[in-house]
Design a protein around this nucleic acid. Structure first.
Lengths: 223, 223
DNA sequence: TTTCCCCTCCCCCGCGAGAGGGAGAAACGT
DNA sequence: ACGTTTCTCCCTCTCGCGGGGGAGGGGAAA
């Protein structure tokens, strides 16, 4: 009984490499590979794979939204999320959605294949470096970032959703070019958003924005 | 640089088998093996191993209590918990105590050795079948929180006092000119220090330095 | 339909930042 | 005495950042 796998990633090379790796495994079969989240949701509904491997960063619909859509549909398809960035915020959304895996792309091929098999049998695997963050959080206590305690400063409400997203990207230390790549827009666009964020929040430069984000608990304060 | 390991388990045969397995690994060294939790706590304090592998079920003091004792002592010793029973209640206590691993005894030898290495480098590994329960709980509604870690940043020791001072100034969002004024030195001097700080800490720019400072709790929470 | 907001992208321009050199003067331990 | 480390200051050069404009498209409200 082979495990039917679907892959969604926006990098063509990555997908072809992934397919090649799967072909060497007698128990794994890649039924489709797509380049964005929307296509992933559609193809999963059509082909009903056992496991879907989704990149977090994708055009049109990101992996998290796609995972939530698939998992709430009750199709029984297991989800393994992939990311090049060990964003722990993503882990929580993924876990809350019921994902069966959260792995870094830097993970060795055989380990990733193992993660797929683990997901297929109903278990779950989280990348060790991500697990560490999880443990740190657990040992620190509880309470979701969205709930209790901290009140959002009124100035934040003046930001558009996109601008808030940009603010978080800035706070993670990314350059304009990096933000552009990660959000699939041009660098000029990013510069415009950054400029608006700084103006609306009355900040001098992106460094002040980083400090602003930390002081206002927009970022979890833990390594 | 070998990883120094301590084992605590109440089965004599298991301990000897564990020692044998470690002897085949050039990077792992078993500094002691004990048969109960109380002895584990005492020997960990005396021998200061890098990683302690503790069985959950032990006489006198169980592995969880021992783990909590060791982890709260701030010795820096990492804890990997072992159990034959995948009780998720144990996992939660272990994670809340700050354990770096939670593995089943049924785990293959090489994977357990891998878990020790993972723990030694500061990451964490949870057995996949246990992770699955974790995910179930997460998706059921639990949520974590902002954390506070007590971690000694080793790279900081490579900085001179002046450079540490500069790092704090950077983290406060000051420009080179402002730092110069504040510290009564020339801006060129500041630029030199900043450059050294970035080089020594392996950071790309001052923005990463700000993030570094926050993540390593170099700044008191001010808001 | 018109108006407004949001997102997207483009231009030029000035400036601070950081790299990559070098160099002098203390203070330190030997 | 000596070398090492630290702190100080200087140069040039490149590049990213941010401000100042403008502009088009789409969606939602009026």
């Amino acid at each position: 009984m082979t495990i039917r796998v679907l892959l969604a990633d926006d990098h063509e090379f990555y997908r072809s490499g992934f397919r090649s790796a799967l072909e060497t495994q007698p128990d794994l079969e890649c039924v489709a590979d797509v380049g964005d989240g929307l296509a992933a949701v559609r193809e999963i509904a059509r082909l009903r794979p056992d496991v879907a491997v989704l990149d977090v960063r994708m055009p049109r619909m990101d992996g998290l939204a796609a995972a939530e859509s698939v998992l709430s549909s009750g199709s029984g398809c297991k989800i393994v999320l992939l990311t090049t960035y060990d964003e722990d915020g993503y882990v929580y959304r993924a876990l809350q959605a019921g994902a069966s895996g959260f792995c870094l792309k830097s993970m060795p091929t055989d380990e990733l294949l193992g993660a797929i098999r683990i997901a297929a049998r109903g278990d779950a695997l989280i990348d060790p470096s991500v697990t560490r963050r999880l443990v740190t959080r657990f040992s620190a206590g509880l309470a979701p970032a969205s709930a209790s305690a901290t009140r959002p400063p009124a100035a934040l409400d003046r930001l558009t959703p996109r601008e808030r997203e940009i603010l978080l990207e800035i706070a993670r230390g990314r350059s304009n070019a990096e933000i552009a790549t990660h959000l699939f827009v041009g660098e000029q666009t990013v510069k415009t958003h950054v400029s608006h964020v700084l103006t609306k929040l009355g900040l001098r430069d992106r460094i002040q924005a980083v400090i602003y984000a930390y002081e206002n608990a927009l970022l979890p304060r833990s390594p």
